[in-house]
Design a protein around this nucleic acid. Structure first.
Lengths: 328, 328
DNA sequence: CGTTAGGATGCAAACGTTGTCACTCACTCG
DNA sequence: CGAGTGAGTGACAACGTTTGCATCCTAACG
């Protein structure tokens, strides 16, 4: 193993100079710096992370806690965060908690001491999660609470766009098939829908609630939607929309002929199914990137002058699952 | 921050005893051990990972390198590996290389010094990857090379099952829409198919090759499949199958009426599309689990008596995309 | 030419843990 | 009753890095 001592000997300087030349190049004279970097490269020197962390007290890494990596939503955020962390020369430890609040607290407690900060992606239980942090810098992703710093998407804006679209097609009664009540996204979407329909006095909202955010949830919701008399429906996510379409087909109803459907997330299944789903898209890689940037700002010096991250745009992607309402 | 010194003082012993009581409890007298563990719990002591790694030279963590976390295949393997690592009290650092062989080598070089071993789940460039390891223990996942330890799925067995199924339905000419040539899975599937058709002298194989492992690849392949005169087709993965079905539909051909289609991987989209895909499934979580176990064995003491991991079963899931061939 | 400021570098002390070595007993066996 | 044994514990030296402080030297100024 190559250490600072080897590099120092090769470059004819002391170990302090090696350390400085690599960490704070501007504090070392140019010729010396070049000799050191050359020697380091030549010998294939790689600083020992453990020693560095131990001495300096910073790890140069963030933690990212997600409930389910197999969910493309979180996978995409994770990819964006990891790419950005790499660009910044930081590590990123991703931990999957399997949607288990207990594992979540454990993961955070485990991660906290060996990272410089934590990205919390949709925790189930914010309270216990925050407790496990022990004061470590944190950024919440796609949710906010307690005035903790966060990076969120503009769910309300997305809902407004969905309602505008449906209203323009002629729909006047719109249902919402909601996800878990504990989910921040679900709450924001409900609020966003309410605000949206209030803007137009000719559109009504029917809230249906608390379905599992999977295909089965949509299947379970379908009959309620039909009974509600709505001609269009917005679902908690694309999977729910797919389940809904499936159950409607089984009942002999067709989308979008008999009912228009808007999904959420634009996960990549949305364009694969028949009919391709009209859905709402946020740039999730960008969410991951910004979360890392924001955490870097929070964890770095000068926390006081901290610019808030504005909610990220949510865009409507129109495909084949929305159309004019059926003629009376 | 609570250190061994604090615990030692509280328990009235020396720091060596604290370290021993926690790491190797059987080397410490029971009453002392209890005093130490009680004190540790009381003070909320958490060993400093960095110090431990620095001194002991082991990190208690593995690395997992995957080309794309957003791909459900790798996400599932990662979940399995992470769960198993947690069970064993190990960390797991997951790195996404964005399918970039260069980033891959870099990630490995970065990971190697700070882990006890690496799980390589990446069909890109085995050569340069292995070079970057610098002798660190490694287990290849879903590929093998150079006699390196590996955990693989029984792709050949899966292909045999697919061919048996199609032959039983009456198909006599089967096409294979292949993925990237550099992919180990693709090579094993081709071989498996050749072996399978050789068992039955009444089935022919048409190999089409090297399509992108995405929906677009399937769309590109569709016309070649039709021209080949095959009545059934096996695709590199489910996405390719979906693209294929899509392009066939655009040409007025229906699946399974005009052509039977078998996907691979049973990713969760397989059951969502219309028609639901007949596909081949391996238990990918189990792949992740076994990979961790195997790496633990390889990295641990006594490497000589190392049991090889037999290929994991690949099972045929029959859904709606396969049927009798069209009547002549 | 003398003084001083400040840039560049070296010295040495941590950081918290593990593991080697040595020491103390209490016990057993001859 | 003495020597030997081994379990239990403590003292202390690393591991490789960062960083405060001391030191040296050059250059600029009076």
């Amino acid at each position: 193993m190559v250490t600072v001592h080897d590099v120092a000997r090769a470059a004819g300087v002391s170990i302090s100079t090696v350390s400085r030349a690599l960490a704070t190049p501007d504090r070392v004279a140019a010729p010396t710096r070049d000799r050191v970097t050359a020697a380091a490269r030549e010998l294939g020197y790689r600083p020992n992370r453990a020693a560095s962390v131990l001495r300096a007290g910073r790890s140069g890494a963030f933690g990212l806690v997600v409930p389910d990596l197999a969910n493309p939503f979180f996978a995409t955020v994770a990819k964006g965060a990891q790419a950005r962390a790499r660009q910044r020369g930081l590590g990123l430890f991703v931990v999957d908690t399997d949607e288990d609040p207990e594992l979540e607290a454990e993961a955070i407690a485990h991660l906290a001491p060996q990272t410089d900060g934590i990205l919390l992606c949709s925790p189930r239980a914010v309270g216990s999660a925050v407790a496990a942090l022990e004061g470590r810098p944190v950024v919440l992703v796609n949710q906010n609470a307690d005035g903790l710093p966060s990076v969120v998407t503009d769910q309300a804006g997305g809902m407004l766009r969905a309602v505008e679209h449906l209203r323009a097609l002629g729909h006047r009664r719109v249902a919402y098939v909601g996800g878990p009540r504990s989910s921040w996204s679900d709450r924001r979407r409900r609020e966003g829908l309410r605000e949206a329909v209030e803007l137009f006095d000719d559109v009504e909202l029917v809230e249906l609630g608390d379905f599992r955010p999977q295909v089965a949830g949509g299947q379970a919701a379908a009959d309620l939607v039909v009974a509600s008399g709505a001609t269009a429906v917005v679902t908690f996510n694309d999977l729910v929309a797919i389940g809904l379409v499936d159950r409607l087909r089984a009942r002999g109803l067709r989308v979008p002929r008999d009912l228009s459907v808007v999904g959420c997330d634009d996960s990549y299944v949305a364009s694969l199914v028949d009919p391709a789903l009209t859905t709402l898209r946020a740039d999730l890689r960008d969410v991951g990137r910004r979360a890392v940037d924001h955490l870097a700002a929070v964890a770095g010096p000068g926390r006081d002058t901290l610019a808030e991250v504005p909610p990220l745009d949510v865009e409507l992607v129109v495909r084949a699952s929305t159309a004019l309402p059926p003629a009376r």
